[in-house]
Protein backbone atom coordinates (compact mmCIF):
# COMPACT_ATOMS: atom_id res chain seq x y z
CA UNK A 1 0.00 0.00 0.00
CA UNK A 2 1.53 3.33 -0.99
CA UNK A 3 1.34 6.04 1.60
CA UNK A 4 0.34 9.55 0.57
CA UNK A 5 3.97 10.57 1.11
CA UNK A 6 4.95 8.56 -2.03
CA UNK A 7 3.00 11.13 -3.96
CA UNK A 8 4.83 14.37 -4.70
CA UNK A 9 1.81 16.66 -4.83
CA UNK A 10 3.93 19.67 -5.79
CA UNK A 11 5.29 17.82 -8.82
CA UNK A 12 1.84 16.63 -9.85
CA UNK A 13 0.42 20.15 -9.48
CA UNK A 14 3.25 21.58 -11.54
CA UNK A 15 2.74 19.04 -14.33
CA UNK A 16 -0.93 19.99 -14.48
CA UNK A 17 -0.10 23.71 -14.23
CA UNK A 18 -2.43 24.08 -11.23
CA UNK A 19 -1.63 26.36 -8.29
CA UNK A 20 -2.71 24.75 -5.03
CA UNK A 21 -3.05 26.26 -1.54
CA UNK A 22 -1.42 24.36 1.35
CA UNK A 23 -4.88 23.15 2.43
CA UNK A 24 -5.67 21.90 -1.07
CA UNK A 25 -2.33 20.15 -1.25
CA UNK A 26 -3.09 18.21 1.92
CA UNK A 27 -6.59 17.41 0.76
CA UNK A 28 -5.66 16.33 -2.79
CA UNK A 29 -2.59 14.40 -1.66
CA UNK A 30 -4.86 12.32 0.58
CA UNK A 31 -7.46 11.84 -2.13
CA UNK A 32 -4.94 10.91 -4.82
CA UNK A 33 -3.28 8.59 -2.32
CA UNK A 34 -6.62 6.81 -1.93
CA UNK A 35 -6.88 6.47 -5.71
CA UNK A 36 -3.39 4.97 -5.88
CA UNK A 37 -4.24 2.56 -3.09
CA UNK A 38 -7.37 1.53 -4.96
CA UNK A 39 -5.44 0.91 -8.17
CA UNK A 40 -2.86 -1.00 -6.12
CA UNK A 41 -5.38 -3.83 -5.75
CA UNK A 42 -4.66 -4.76 -9.37
CA UNK A 43 -1.31 -6.05 -8.20
CA UNK A 44 -3.05 -8.99 -6.52
CA UNK A 45 -4.37 -10.28 -9.88
CA UNK A 46 -2.46 -13.23 -11.33
CA UNK A 47 -1.34 -12.03 -14.78
CA UNK A 48 1.06 -14.84 -15.58
CA UNK A 49 0.78 -15.67 -19.28
CA UNK A 50 -1.25 -12.58 -20.17
CA UNK A 51 0.18 -10.24 -22.81
CA UNK A 52 0.17 -6.54 -21.94
CA UNK A 53 -2.51 -4.75 -23.90
CA UNK A 54 -3.49 -1.13 -24.36
CA UNK A 55 -7.04 -1.88 -25.42
CA UNK A 56 -9.73 -4.26 -24.29
CA UNK A 57 -10.97 -5.08 -27.80
CA UNK A 58 -8.92 -6.91 -30.44
CA UNK A 59 -9.51 -4.27 -33.11
CA UNK A 60 -6.62 -3.14 -35.33
CA UNK A 61 -5.87 -0.94 -38.31
CA UNK A 62 -8.66 1.61 -38.11
CA UNK A 63 -7.64 4.13 -40.74
CA UNK A 64 -8.77 6.29 -43.65
CA UNK A 65 -7.36 6.81 -47.13
CA UNK A 66 -5.14 9.85 -47.64
CA UNK A 67 -7.70 12.09 -49.30
CA UNK A 68 -7.50 15.72 -48.25
CA UNK A 69 -10.64 17.68 -47.57
CA UNK A 70 -11.13 21.34 -46.71
CA UNK A 71 -10.50 22.44 -43.15
CA UNK A 72 -11.79 25.37 -41.17
CA UNK A 73 -11.77 28.90 -42.52
CA UNK A 74 -9.17 30.90 -40.64
CA UNK A 75 -11.84 33.06 -38.94
CA UNK A 76 -13.49 29.95 -37.51
CA UNK A 77 -10.14 28.47 -36.50
CA UNK A 78 -9.27 31.58 -34.49
CA UNK A 79 -12.69 32.22 -32.98
CA UNK A 80 -11.73 30.86 -29.56
CA UNK A 81 -8.34 32.55 -29.43
CA UNK A 82 -8.08 35.00 -26.52
CA UNK A 83 -5.88 37.22 -28.70
CA UNK A 84 -4.90 37.12 -32.35
CA UNK A 85 -2.77 39.06 -34.79
CA UNK A 86 -1.94 38.49 -38.46
CA UNK A 87 -4.20 35.42 -38.45
CA UNK A 88 -2.14 33.83 -35.70
CA UNK A 89 -2.86 33.15 -32.06
CA UNK A 90 -1.00 35.44 -29.66
CA UNK A 91 0.51 33.71 -26.64
CA UNK A 92 2.91 34.89 -23.94
CA UNK A 93 6.46 34.78 -25.24
CA UNK A 94 7.82 31.26 -25.03
CA UNK A 95 11.42 30.44 -25.73
CA UNK A 96 12.57 27.04 -24.66
Amino acid sequence: MPSPTDLNIDHVAHLARIALTPEEKTQFAAQLGDVLAYIEQLKTVDIAGIEPTAHAFPIYNVWADDVARPGLPVEAALRNAPAQRDNMIVVPKVVE
Partner: peptide, 27 residues
Protein backbone atom coordinates in the same frame (compact mmCIF):
# COMPACT_ATOMS: atom_id res chain seq x y z
CA UNK B 1 4.80 13.10 -48.03
CA UNK B 2 1.04 12.76 -47.61
CA UNK B 3 -1.86 14.87 -48.82
CA UNK B 4 -3.62 14.95 -45.47
CA UNK B 5 -2.51 15.01 -41.84
CA UNK B 6 -1.59 12.06 -39.64
CA UNK B 7 -4.85 11.75 -37.72
CA UNK B 8 -7.31 13.87 -39.69
CA UNK B 9 -7.94 14.62 -43.36
CA UNK B 10 -7.31 18.35 -43.57
CA UNK B 11 -4.56 19.04 -46.12
CA UNK B 12 -0.87 19.29 -45.26
CA UNK B 13 1.21 22.04 -46.87
CA UNK B 14 4.09 24.47 -46.60
CA UNK B 15 3.96 28.20 -47.21
CA UNK B 16 0.18 28.47 -47.00
CA UNK B 17 -1.45 31.48 -45.29
CA UNK B 18 -1.31 31.09 -41.50
CA UNK B 19 -3.89 28.86 -39.82
CA UNK B 20 -5.63 27.82 -43.03
CA UNK B 21 -4.73 24.12 -42.67
CA UNK B 22 -6.60 23.36 -39.47
CA UNK B 23 -9.75 21.53 -38.50
CA UNK B 24 -11.35 20.56 -35.20
CA UNK B 25 -8.93 17.60 -34.75
CA UNK B 26 -5.83 19.75 -35.35
CA UNK B 27 -7.13 22.35 -32.92
Amino acid sequence: KTRSKMFTRVATGFGQPENTLTDPVVL
